[in-house]
Design a protein around this nucleic acid. Structure first.
Length: 567
RNA sequence: UGCCCCAUGGUGUAAUGGUAACACACCGGAUUUUGGUUCCGUUUUUCCAGGUUCGAGUCCUGGUGGGGCAACCA
């Protein structure tokens, strides 16, 4: 049954019977009950202390996608309650990544730090209600009293302070009259609660730290739990979606909202995205950067959005991937192959085809005169006739791919060039092997072929059957380029799956291969970073945004073509 | 020896008490001037044990397995 709610973004999900994930079902039910007048308002709340990665992309697609789908709004909120870890540089990078993914925060942009004053007032209110107190014990003492998951905690000696002294001390905390670590504000809930988060959680701690936005205005900062739900509430967020690890925080989230009597945002949790053959935690990603294993946060091998972008991933492909991954509460590990499929699937329809030879082998057409060059038309994209045609130079001297020629004996599964064989040169002619030259090491240095003039592409009357088609670049017009091939960063599907092994031990030593002296067709000089190209038979590539120069282009391979050859 | 969440092909995700399906992967075939694309097809699935029911992947009970929960992090 088709639901009556509008579907703005339902890519890959438009079968007759629409498949609704559990969050959609919750929202559908909420709407049916007339909750919040049918309003849907979500938020994406990153802490500006690092770069966004593919895992965040899922959260972004969920929050922005749902808001779009229900004709609602989505806020971008920077959850900046810990000044020692956060920085404006991350704020800018996060904004750029979300925009690149193709989403707009139509509900506005906010910072939790904008609510510091309100949050302070909320805390005062709880103190006045006898629901919060200042604890002067050390972190160790408090931890010891917390109990364990299987045994209850014990009360702090400061738990029953008077409202007056709590109020005075809390104001003194704000005024900077007490050193860091000397006291905290705690909610007075239940030291024996089965949920550890309810055992008098911290609300505020003292930190004499410069905040990237509020500067030195504050020396006390709210904890996550005392900030998040209230921020949702202040913004009128109807559905606060987060990952599974916050499930145990939900009672506390609700406790603050109820005891403050503020707008009842509802928290719902879903399983975060995990990808095999990579790591996703900020700490581990940081280590890759700091240890120089990668080039930086935007190294094309990184699972960061900036890395994927530099590698050549399109925002469309990442969105499609997130759709395909689905949404549930079950812990999952997605095969990186699905990400790669999503990229190929998108780029196949939009990438301009071009000829590039990565490991050049010289080919001489013996029956063409010295200096012969002609221009031949070729499709820009066979999947898209509207992409048109372009002319490429063809001549007596070409480069073909080294492994497209085999001098030794080959079996019948070999479609490419070899002694006695004929092949089609893409968009050009069929050529037949004549002979080849080798150096003193037995290395093939040149292959000579004979061209069949009546086999010209588009007007082939030769009747010759060539099973294989090779890509090639005409030698005198070829441009030099560097091409970087990437493989997965780790050789183990679960680099951090073994507690007794450091994930760095699983690094794939061959994750980057730099090929210099590659030959590309002249049209590639107009390539721009971020633009998708398909190098015929080789994969999808884009110009590297960092290392390319006008006279020395550097191309990154985003992904290979699917290789169906079982030879 | 506590509390919370989860369990469907190799990997994900559907089926909302009524024929277990979709995508990716895999394997086979057709088409192909990219060993790409496209098309067709094969193989493979409800953690276990009880119970409720005409009927259970779905509801109940109990197991088992996995994840999470004690930071002046988010």
């Amino acid at each position: 049954m088709e639901s009556s709610t509008p579907h703005a973004h339902t890519e890959g999900n438009e079968e007759g019977k629409s498949r609704r994930h559990f969050i959609q079902q919750i929202i559908d039910a909420d709407l049916q009950e007339g909750l919040h007048g049918g309003r849907v308002h979500t938020r994406f709340p990153p802490e500006p202390n690092g770069y966004l990665h593919i895992g965040h992309a899922k959260a972004i697609c969920v929050n922005f996608g749902l808001a779009n789908e229900y004709g609602g709004k989505v806020n971008l909120r920077f959850d900046d309650t810990n000044p020692v870890k956060e920085d404006t540089a991350y704020v800018d990078a996060i904004r750029a990544d979300i925009a690149w993914l193709g989403f707009e925060w139509n509900g506005g942009e906010y910072f939790t730090s904008d609510y510091f004053e309100t949050l302070f007032d909320y805390a005062v209110r709880l103190i006045k209600d006898g629901k919060a107190y200042v604890d002067e014990q050390s972190a160790e003492e408090i931890a010891a009293q917390k109990g364990t998951p299987t045994s209850p905690g014990t009360a702090s000696p400061y738990r029953d302070r008077t409202v007056e002294s709590n109020l005075r001390l809390f104001h003194e905390m704000r005024e900077g009259k007490h050193p860091e670590g000397s006291m905290v504000l705690r909610a007075k809930i239940d030291m024996g609660h089965a949920n550890m988060h309810m055992r008098d959680p911290f609300m505020y701690r003292i930190k004499f730290a410069h905040h990237h936005r509020t500067g030195d205005a504050w020396c006390i900062y709210p904890m996550y739990d005392f900030a998040h739900g209230q921020s949702d509430s202040i913004e009128g967020i109807t559905h606060s979606l987060c990952s599974l690890e916050f499930e145990n925080h939900r009672p506390l989230y609700e406790w603050y909202i109820e005891n403050l009597g503020i707008f009842p945002s509802k928290q719902r949790e879903f399983a975060r995205l995990n990808l095999n053959y990579t790591v996703m935690s900020k700490r581990k990603l940081l280590r890759l950067v700091e240890d120089g294993v990668v080039d930086g946060w935007d190294d094309p091998r990184m699972p960061t959005l900036s890395g994927l972008r530099r590698r050549g991933y399109s925002p469309e492909s990442i969105r499609a991937f997130c759709d395909r991954v689905g949404l549930a509460k079950r812990n999952n590990i997605i095969d990186v192959g699905l990400l790669e499929f999503s990229l190929r699937d998108h780029l196949n329809s939009v990438a301009t085809r071009a000829m590039a030879v990565l490991r050049p082998l010289k080919m001489l057409i013996v029956n063409l005169p010295e200096g012969h060059v002609e221009w031949l038309p070729t499709e820009n994209n066979p999947e898209d006739p509207s992409a048109g045609m372009r002319d490429i130079p063809f001549g007596r001297e070409l480069f073909i791919e080294e492994d497209d020629f085999k001098a030794e004996e080959v079996n019948k599964k070999w479609f490419r060039l070899a002694p006695g064989r004929s092949v089609r040169l893409k968009s050009a002619y069929i050529v037949t092997y004549v002979n080849h030259l080798v150096d003193e090491h037995g290395q093939v240095t040149e292959v000579h072929v004979e061209l069949h003039p009546d086999s010209k592409s588009g007007s082939d009357t030769s009747g010759i059957k060539a099973k294989g088609t090779l890509h090639w670049v005409e030698a005198t017009h070829a441009k030099d380029a560097e091409v970087r091939l990437y493989d997965r960063l780790f050789s183990d599907p679960s680099p951090d799956g073994d507690k007794d092994r450091d994930f760095m031990e699983c690094l794939n030593p061959d994750s980057l291969e730099r090929l210099k002296g590659c030959k590309v067709e002249p049209s590639l000089v107009t390539a721009e970073a971020g633009e998708p190209w398909q190098f015929t038979r080789l994969g999808y590539f884009t110009l590297d945004s960092r290392y390319s120069t006008a006279d020395r282009p550097v191309f990154n391979r985003a992904v290979t073509l699917k290789d169906g050859w079982k030879g």
